[in-house]
Nucleic acid binder design. Structure first.
Lengths: 133, 133
DNA sequence: AGACAGGTTGACGTTAACGTCAGCGTAACG
DNA sequence: CGTTACGCTGACGTTAACGTCAACCTGTCT
């Protein structure tokens, strides 16, 4: 019987298709303790928790955070386990990340505005056409 | 006589102090054609143009862009030189970057909102204190 | 039984973005 | 004129984040 009868867990290939990553990447993330799929014999089965974490990981990457940065922040989203002291640390770390992200947002807004200005000027100088080949 | 008598150019060390990077980094960026300081004999002298570009480079990095991505976009800010065809390409590339950045901002907003929610819930669950050690 | 699809574990290769170190040049200072 | 500061050029080392490949197991289909 196939193991994917359970809709709550996914095989490595299903994960790859769903998130557009390679098996190597998922195993790598597991080795780095970003994911912790359960084992059915030797095979990995990824739970909802793994999927949620992977989504957060990929997002974090798009924002330029390192896997190590991400790993540490990730624990906040784990409402269940963890000692109080650990949770407190995760919380504070997440606060720090929040501050960073808000700063990044501010700078991003600025950069976008500047780039728009630059594009408008280039246009005004008549050296480019809005839509070409 | 010291070369830094000219306020328009800076030595490598002045650049390092101003932008908090190492000499190695500046030479590396030059090798990758992101910067093109003039030479006084063997020594590098960085112009206003180099400084402007470096600022953009460092910003781009904070947004998670690769040096290669940055290098290509950078040319848009070079109002002077360049063939028309080249400028047109740079323009279109910059448009693409703009779209990317706006998408990134949207996702960033979402992520910030989610993280805030998560923090609020953690607080509500009473497992953490807003400000600890 | 044979073959095939899908998964697993090492182990080594690769790319980006620098760090580090040796060896050399040179300019200004005491 | 020696040395101290600053800079330069290779050239090799390093870290992160995977890619690639070989060798192996295992369930399923024919």
């Amino acid at each position: 019987m196939k193991p994917d009868s359970n809709p709550d867990v996914m095989t490595i290939r299903q994960m790859c298709d769903a998130f557009d990553v390679t098996p190597r990447t998922l195993r790598f993330y597991e080795a780095k303790e970003l994911l912790s799929p359960i084992r059915e014999g030797t095979r990995r089965l990824f739970t909802r928790r793994d999927r949620a974490r992977l989504a957060l990981i990929l997002r974090g990457k798009r924002f330029g955070f390192s896997l190590e940065d991400i790993r540490q922040t990730l624990d906040l989203y784990d409402r269940d386990g963890g000692q109080t002291a650990q949770r407190q640390k995760a919380y504070e770390l997440a606060m720090k990340r929040l501050t960073e992200m808000e700063a990044q947002r501010a700078e991003l807004d600025l950069a976008i505005a500047e780039l728009k200005t630059e594009l408008a000027e280039a246009e005004a100088r008549g050296l480019v056409s809005r839509h070409a080949a």
